[in-house]
């Protein structure tokens, strides 16, 4: 089966595994906000799942701490492909307020192939939604 069809099927039902690599937990709360009645991500078929094996999207928040790097790699490897990686929050993009800290030598995109960056500290739910919609559009265009 060709890659385009797979990606198209993927965009219609994205199952998200939420991985916090040492965030201050504020980003995580904003992500949960997206599932509440006000924003309701299930409209696009997006749900949170409990196991990385079920996931299509690895959603990473927080600045990656030293201890977490091998674990993050492991989780990414156990995710069934094809899958995408989304980095949420300034911490995950660069280091945000933790810049220069001895405990976080690498950014998320130096370890994982990130497909979508959502900046903000924390990003608003609207920003996360806008980012997800952009990602879906991008994946659909890739198919043709």
């Amino acid at each position: 089966m060709n890659m385009g069809f797979k990606l198209n099927a993927l965009t219609r039902s994205l199952w998200v595994y939420h991985l916090s690599t040492g965030s201050c937990n504020n980003c995580d709360i904003e992500i949960l906000d997206c599932l509440t009645p006000r924003y309701d991500l299930e409209r696009f078929g997006i749900t949170l799942v409990g196991s990385p094996k079920h996931a299509d999207v690895l959603l990473v928040t927080g600045n990656m701490t030293l201890k977490n790097i091998p674990r993050v790699k492991k989780v990414y490897e156990s995710m069934a492909k094809p899958g995408v990686v989304i980095a949420v929050g300034t911490c995950a993009l660069g280091h945000g307020i933790f810049k220069g800290s001895y405990i976080c030598p690498q950014c998320v995109d130096e370890v994982l192939p990130v497909n979508l960056y959502i900046p903000g500290c924390p990003p608003k739910p609207e920003a996360i939604l806008a980012g997800v919609v952009k990602l879906i559009k991008h994946l659909r265009e890739k198919k043709t």
Binding site: K6, L10, R12, S13, D56, K81, P82
Partner: peptide
């Protein structure tokens, strides 16, 4: 959609 997507995913 959910079933179709799962059918095209990799089996670990």
């Amino acid at each position: 959609f959910d079933l179709a997507k799962l059918m095209v995913k990799e089996t670990v």
